[in-house]
Design a protein around this nucleic acid. Structure first.
Lengths: 136, 136
DNA sequence: ATCCTACGATGGACTAGATCCAAGTCAATA
DNA sequence: TATTGACTTGGATCTAGTCCATCGTAGGAT
């Protein structure tokens, strides 16, 4: 994520203070913020940033493949900047904490042709559920 | 699902026309309706049923483990009555069509202890994504 | 260094999905 | 069949997200 700004500029992204702040807020490991949380943190650094800009920028980062959307069954989508390294998620059913995980095996290979109903299958998301150490 | 009403009655569920209609609407294979679709179909049979009752009833069926919520990244949650038989989902990225699928292997066993971060893991949901035959 | 202008930001209105609540209704028990 | 507490209602409310007319500015052109 650290060279994200460089990569974006190389793709012709017009760099603005707002976009830089949103990208910086998302930087890190095990980051899974909602749009509102991104807005709050961005506002700390750039008080006049608007909600619409945060949504626009997040949407662009998703289309560019730099960030993935995660729906953990809470209400709001979360934004995961760790898109460059494939992974799945482990979610605490009580407090909502999320960790990135890397299961063994190839889940795509585990779906036999007879179970594909003619679909062209391109990917799979796995969401493990349980209780985190604090919530057990 | 056919004996659902009996099971619910056995659990002390107070049977009402509204609850019966919601349960009947959900009966079947490969049913993944949104709350609004459930409301629309229930209204066909029982015109005065209210939105709040549909949400209440769906929520109760979920807590009772008779129905599972599926969030396919569209906006609205979908309700899947096929909870008695474990399965996962295959979703068309373009039109949103959903099929129940049964991958081989045991995804829970594929998550090594070192990747559990101290969580007590109780389940996993898999969502395969792709394009259905009509949308390819 | 300054100008231009197309792209980006703004904020307030709007929408969809879901939940809340006070008042009315009725299924199940006695 | 009388009672009562659980269920239903519909309208208000809430949250997440989108839209849009207008304003501002990044970055290329001069």
């Amino acid at each position: 994520m650290s060279d994200l700004l460089e990569r974006l500029r190389g793709r012709g992204w017009r760099m603005t203070a707002q976009r830089r702040v949103v990208a910086e807020v998302l930087d890190g490991e095990h980051i899974h913020l909602t749009a509102d949380e991104v807005l709050a943190r961005a506002t700390d650094r750039l008080p006049e940033i608007s909600r619409a800009t945060v949504y626009n920028t997040l949407g662009e980062l998703v289309s560019l493949g730099e960030v993935t959307e995660v729906t953990t069954n809470g209400r709001a989508k979360r934004y995961d900047p760790n898109a460059h390294r494939p992974h799945h998620h482990l979610v605490c059913a009580r407090c909502g904490a999320i960790r990135d995980v890397h299961p063994e095996g190839d889940p795509l290979a585990d779906l036999p042709a007879s179970e594909r109903f003619g679909f062209t299958v391109s990917g799979v998301e796995m969401t493990y559920r349980g209780l985190c150490p604090q919530c057990v």
